[in-house]
Write a protein that binds this DNA or RNA. Structure first.
Lengths: 126, 126
DNA sequence: TAGCATTGCTAAATTTGCCAAGCAAAAACC
DNA sequence: GGTTTTTGCTTGGCAAATTTAGCAATGCTA
């Protein structure tokens, strides 16, 4: 029970931090986002500060479209059940990672795979 | 605008009718569903009569499980945006990349994000 | 530097989701 | 037939979601 409440609290903080970071990346103000989505700047501020436990899916979708991030990711960060149920944890981790990485070329993919192997091999040698 | 409002009203009626029908099929009373889901019988009645515009995804999920219907269907009937099926190509590309990368630690994720930025900045300087 | 615009944020107000309480009708029971 | 239980529903109220209004700080411009 305590862990559930703690998870809920963590969800809102994670979602908020994510939204804040996504907005910063686009260099948009709260009022600019309000103009594009119709969601009040005050509410956006509360969302980013983790003060909203259950934002509506409609609002999450608007923000997902504007910030160009997966809607499912926002739903999950909000703590909502998601339609597909692979291992939730690794799916979340992958989606967050995929969102941060974005689309990569084959070249970049090869480079990243190689680099990961490199840093892992460096670590295992210690 | 009027069509949007009409759609919203239609959504709640459709969802309600669907929920009522699903409950009937299981021959359950409102109080029996309340017992299984924790959602009050009063609220369930309001849902079935289309009096709730934005039920929470958590509640829809509980009902989906109890009634053994797809959660995505209830979300759609409620008028919520649902995740689009990604194009097979980009989904395949993502899955391949994700499979190659596998689970990464936060440290590794930071390192990979940084490295990607580095190789992209190196390329943009040429 | 003064005046204006923009920004992030918070309090108050409004709207809505959800529940406890209770009602009337029907069903079940003796 | 009377009593109890079950049922579906409505109402009032609380808390949360969201908006409106306004403040202080900062940035911009002439």
């Amino acid at each position: 029970m305590l862990s559930t409440l703690s998870n809920m609290a963590q969800n809102t903080v994670k979602l908020g931090a994510f939204l804040s970071s996504a907005r910063s990346k686009l260099d948009m103000s709260l009022r600019a986002v309000e103009k594009e989505t119709g969601i009040s700047n005050a509410y956006l501020s509360q969302l980013e500060h983790g003060k909203i436990k259950t934002p509506s899916p409609q609002n999450l979708h608007k923000l997902a479209q504007l910030y160009r991030v997966p809607y499912e990711l926002l739903m999950e960060l909000a703590g909502f059940p998601i339609p597909k149920v692979p291992s939730a944890e690794s799916q979340t981790a992958r989606d967050t990672f995929a969102a941060r990485i974005g689309a990569v070329t084959e070249e970049e993919e090869e480079a990243l795979v190689e680099y990961l192997q490199f840093i892992r091999s460096r670590r295992s040698r210690r």
